[in-house]
Simulated assay, not measured.
Amino acid sequence: MSLEQNISKGIMEAMKAKDTVRLTTLRNIKKYLIEAKTATGGIDELADAEVVKIISKLAKQGSDSAALYTRQGRGDLAAEELAQVAVMQEFLPRQLTAGELTEAVKAIIAETGAQSVKEMGKVMGVASKRLAGRADGKDISAKVRELLA
């Protein structure tokens, strides 16, 4: 079953369970998936990699919003955002730990043959594709820069 189908199934389950946070979150994800499908010419179903990319983006936005709400003393809104992010993370692949990220980036550097920070773009192109959804782009970039320096 594809990730998109799992989200549709999750919407049905959330309606039956009357779980409003889960239902709202999954409907929001579904809206973005439909927009992505229509923007690319009305395809039937998105690839799982595209769905992960969309959900990752939404989860990051939610986390950023929660941090902003916390700084502004709005714990109620921050808690709501974090609850939605938790639902989104159920549909994302497990995030890499710092050690796993280091090993993955070392392997990519060895594979590309990069020697200095000047070749960071070559490494980032491969790393961004290979680690998409499993690590934040900023973390990947920082690790690549650290290992090439």
Rank of each mutant, 00 (worst) to 15 (best):
S2H: 11
D136F: 03
L148I: 04
R74K: 15
E50F: 09
A17V: 04
A49K: 06
Y69K: 10
S141K: 15
I140C: 03
V52N: 00
A107D: 13
G10M: 06
I7F: 02
S141C: 09
P93K: 03
A47F: 03
D19I: 12
T97K: 13
V21A: 06
A14W: 05
K118T: 14
Y32H: 11
A49D: 07
R74V: 13
V144Q: 03
Y69R: 09
Q115N: 07
I54C: 01
M120C: 08
D139W: 09
S128A: 12
Y32T: 05
T97Y: 12
E111I: 09
L26N: 06
Q95S: 12
L26C: 08
L101K: 00
A83K: 02
V85S: 00
L33I: 13
K143F: 07
L23M: 15
K60F: 12
A114T: 06
D76Q: 09
A17L: 03
V126D: 04
I29T: 04
V144E: 04
A114K: 04
R27K: 14
K57C: 02
I109Q: 03
Q61V: 08
T20L: 15
S116V: 05
A110N: 09
I29A: 03
D76T: 12
L33D: 06
A47I: 05
L68I: 14
A78P: 02
V105Q: 00
G137D: 13
M120I: 14
L82V: 12
K37N: 05
T24G: 02
R74F: 14
G133V: 06
I29F: 04
D139H: 13
F91W: 10
V117M: 10
R130K: 14
M88T: 06
S128L: 07
D48S: 01
A66N: 00
L58Y: 01
V52K: 02
K57L: 07
V52M: 01
L77R: 11
A104N: 09
M88Q: 06
E50T: 15
K30H: 14
K122E: 06
D76S: 10
K122I: 05
I7E: 03
K53Y: 01
I43F: 02
V117A: 11
T20V: 15
A132P: 00
T25G: 00
I34D: 12
A47E: 08
V51T: 10
M12W: 01
K129T: 08
E45C: 09
M1H: 00
T112N: 01
G42F: 14
K57F: 07
S65G: 09
E50Y: 08
E103P: 02
A36M: 06
N28T: 13
V123M: 01
Q61D: 11
A98D: 15
E81K: 15
E90K: 10
V51P: 00
L46C: 11
L46R: 11
A17E: 07
Q5G: 05
E4T: 09
M1G: 03
R94C: 09
K143M: 14
A66G: 04
K31I: 15
T38L: 14
M124Y: 10
D44A: 13
G121V: 12
A17Y: 03
A104D: 08
G121E: 08
